[in-house]
Amino acid sequence: EPLWIRPDAPSRCTWQLGRPASESPHHHTAPAKSPKILPDILKKIGDTPMVRINKIGKKFGLKCELLAKCEFFNAGGSVKDRISLRMIEDAERDGTLKPGDTIIEPTSGNTGIGLALAAAVRGYRCIIVMPEKMSSEKVDVLRALGAEIVRTPTNARFDSPESHVGVAWRLKNEIPNSHILDQYRNASNPLAHYDTTADEILQQCDGKLDMLVASVGTGGTITGIARKLKEKCPGCRIIGVDPEGSILAEPEELNQTEQTTYEVEGIGYDFIPTVLDRTVVDKWFKSNDEEAFTFARMLIAQEGLLCGGSAGSTVAVAVKAAQELQEGQRCVVILPDSVRNYMTKFLSDRWMLQKGFLKEEDLTEKKPWWWHLRVQELGLSAPLTVLPTITCGHTIEILREKGFDQAPVVDEAGVILGMVTLGNMLSSLLAGKVQPSDQVGKVIYKQFKQIRLTDTLGRLSHILEMDHFALVVHEQIQYHSTGKSSQRQMVFGVVTAIDLLNFVAAQERDQK
């Protein structure tokens, strides 16, 4: 057995438009009618409502009807409940999964919650491996369901041993009777949507819809739904939504950006999952974080739909894509998950301010006199920076000697690579993860907040409520011999709460 199987392995699926269902090699399930009293909570997966979006479509000038398939009504709160249950049931049916076995899954959280929910009911041990950027709410729900959680670096490539995929496979090879159901490759993922989600949409719309818009992560949702719609409703256009920084969209030119990270969760990847059939997507749109969270908040405030950030991405694209539809036509959007997962993220004004998705003037509360002053007023001194090749031991000596707790790590040209902190280095040394002679590049981390000289002290204040420091950066445009230009970030300084307090105190003292 291989040590790991690539999540982007070539698909062996034989589905073709027009091929009889009787030739399918898979076990198919028909939607079942729910009894009045459910035998367990797993029976509350599927049969989610279709809700008309009344205000947002009109606000953006849509002539067509805009409908939302509300997947956050599933038992675990997301569309991923469907595939989690289906993968477990299919693994039980073919004898792969037996009582007492362990389920391991690399996930952005929602599939993990679905699997942990099913594992709690069915009696399996469950280990979820997820990147650090995923919300604390997801972690809390997983723990409450009895799952064990392993976190991995957000910026690790999918084929790196440190990625959530790599760590999951390492655990599988170490733990007896453990299984990775593997949402990236498992046919049960798109089949769950082909058999149930798509049929529900067709039934709820009486077979009449002209466009379907869905955000894409593993691709199982859009693949399964689109294949069924292509068979039953061939005139329906399928629109895929991919965040900026991901590479799922086609044509490839759409993916060209210097951005590699994004805040919206559960969609987009740096590889093409095996289950994603991009041939059934008629057109791709890219979405960005700001519009995703703005539209998610709009869905909550104006439509009462308590959905997550990827739902915002989907609707932001839908109001663009559906401009081509006329009166009497219908566009369906998939709202994948609930706001429950993001209470401390985009639902929080403070978080939105820190990330730059909300401006101070958007909030009406009274601010102190210094709130709208610029960061450049602080008069920061030149920063202490270190090269990635310097040793951890030497870096600790320098920081202690100069009285700093942290320093930016830059390359020879001064471009920011990340940050090192005294606390992080000492804990890594004590844990045996690094040696004093190791290069400081081994303990770089990139989960820090950046701020510009033109940003306000109010925004800085919000950042420092949650973080010990902020890195002050400025952009530099560099022209190359080819005539092309590129933008790079340079370090201007490091600012802490002490710097802000000293500035405010000094100004008030001078005024007296």
Rank of each mutant, 00 (worst) to 15 (best):
F404H: 06
F404C: 06
I416H: 04
P388D: 02
D438F: 13
V275L: 02
K367L: 11
H468M: 15
N288G: 15
F357R: 06
L460G: 02
Q447A: 14
E253F: 08
L426G: 11
G328E: 02
H468Y: 08
V410T: 12
D277L: 06
G441L: 12
S481C: 13
E265V: 02
G483K: 15
E263A: 11
I239K: 02
L358T: 02
G483C: 13
L426Q: 07
V410A: 11
Q450S: 12
P243A: 07
L373V: 13
G309F: 04
G423S: 08
K433D: 02
K355G: 07
V315M: 09
T260F: 13
L380P: 14
K449S: 10
T395A: 12
G328W: 02
R488H: 13
A505G: 11
K433A: 11
E361F: 10
L353D: 02
V275K: 02
F448R: 07
R297C: 02
D277Y: 02
M425E: 02
K345G: 05
D282H: 02
E365W: 12
A505H: 02
R278G: 07
T482F: 12
T344F: 02
E412S: 10
I444C: 13
E361W: 12
E360V: 11
A296Q: 04
T344P: 02
D362V: 14
I239V: 04
L501I: 10
I396A: 02
A413N: 14
L248H: 02
K320E: 09
D242G: 04
W351P: 07
W369M: 15
I477R: 10
K359H: 15
K345C: 05
A407G: 13
E397Y: 05
H480N: 09
M425F: 11
E361C: 10
G441A: 10
E327F: 08
G403V: 12
D349P: 07
S381F: 11
H372C: 13
E303G: 06
L254G: 02
A407I: 14
K442F: 12
Y342I: 06
P436C: 14
E377C: 05
L500M: 11
K402W: 02
D438G: 13
D349G: 05
E377N: 02
G356L: 05
Q476W: 02
A301Y: 13
D455L: 09
L471R: 02
G312M: 02
P368I: 13
D411W: 10
S461A: 04
G309L: 02
K320H: 05
C392P: 10
T274E: 04
L299V: 15
C331H: 02
L305W: 02
K286C: 04
N255S: 05
L422S: 10
Q326N: 09
W284T: 02
Y342D: 06
H462T: 09
I390N: 12
E508F: 13
L353A: 10
M425V: 13
E397W: 10
V494C: 15
C307R: 05
G240D: 09
E324V: 13
I498E: 10
D510I: 02
G268I: 05
K484S: 14
G403D: 13
I238F: 10
L380R: 13
K283A: 09
M352V: 02
D289L: 02
N424E: 11
Q507G: 08
H468C: 04
L429I: 12
I398M: 14
P251L: 11
V315W: 02
G414N: 02
V440S: 12
R278I: 02
T344D: 02
K355D: 02
L501S: 02
K512Y: 02
V495K: 02
H480M: 08
T314C: 02
L378F: 13
D242I: 02
L426F: 11
V280W: 10
K286A: 02
A321C: 14
Q302W: 12
N288H: 02
R488T: 10
E412V: 11
I463L: 11
E291T: 09
D270L: 02
K402T: 15
P408V: 05
L430F: 15
S427Y: 11
L457Y: 14
D455T: 12
H468A: 06
R488C: 06
C331S: 06
L363G: 10
F469T: 02
N255E: 06
P436I: 13
A296Y: 05
Q450A: 06
R297G: 04
M490Y: 14
R488S: 15
V333H: 02
D337F: 02
R330L: 02
Q447F: 09
D362F: 12
G441T: 02
S485V: 02
R350D: 07
V443M: 14
G441E: 09
S348A: 10
V386F: 10
E397L: 11
E258K: 13
T389F: 15
K446S: 12
G441N: 14
Q439F: 13
M490N: 15
A497C: 08
G441Y: 14
G483N: 02
T391L: 09
S287A: 10
E412T: 11
T496Q: 14
I238R: 02
H462A: 14
I398F: 12
S437L: 13
R459S: 07
K359A: 08
Q476R: 08
L422D: 10
R350S: 14
F404T: 08
G418D: 07
G403L: 02
T391D: 02
T421Q: 13
R374F: 11
A311T: 14
S486W: 09
F271L: 05
H394C: 05
L417F: 12
L358G: 06
R509D: 15
D289I: 02
D467A: 12
G441I: 10
L417Q: 10
N424D: 13
Q447C: 14
L426D: 05
Q406T: 14
L363A: 02
Q376A: 02
F295Y: 10
A431F: 02
I396K: 02
R452A: 11
W370C: 13
I463A: 02
F285L: 10
K345F: 02
Y479R: 15
R509E: 12
G423E: 11
G309C: 07
D499K: 10
V495G: 12
I444S: 13
V415Y: 13
E324N: 15
Y269P: 02
E263L: 08
E324Y: 15
Q329Y: 09
E465L: 14
P383Y: 09
A316D: 09
Q478L: 15
A311V: 07
K367I: 11
W369V: 09
A301W: 09
A301N: 14
R340T: 05
A249T: 02
Y479T: 14
V264D: 04
T257I: 08
K402V: 11
D282Y: 15
C307P: 07
R452H: 14
T279G: 09
L325A: 02
E365L: 09
C307N: 02
N341T: 02
F492E: 12
S313T: 12
E252G: 08
I463N: 05
T389N: 13
I390W: 10
V420I: 11
A318E: 07
F469V: 09
L306A: 02
P336W: 02
T385A: 14
T389C: 07
L353K: 15
V280P: 09
M466N: 04
A316S: 05
D362K: 14
K355T: 02
T391W: 02
V491A: 13
E263M: 08
K442W: 11
D277F: 02
V264N: 02
A470Y: 02
Q329M: 14
V494A: 11
F404E: 02
A249S: 02
P408A: 10
E365H: 14
S287Y: 02
F492M: 14
L471P: 14
F492C: 11
I390C: 09
F503D: 02
D455G: 05
I247F: 02
V472K: 02
Y479I: 11
Q439P: 08
A470F: 04
T257W: 10
I416F: 08
E252V: 10
R452V: 10
C392F: 12
P336A: 04
S437K: 15
V410P: 02
H372I: 11
K442R: 13
T294G: 15
D362A: 14
M419Y: 14
G268Q: 04
N288T: 05
V410H: 11
H480D: 11
T344W: 02
G403R: 14
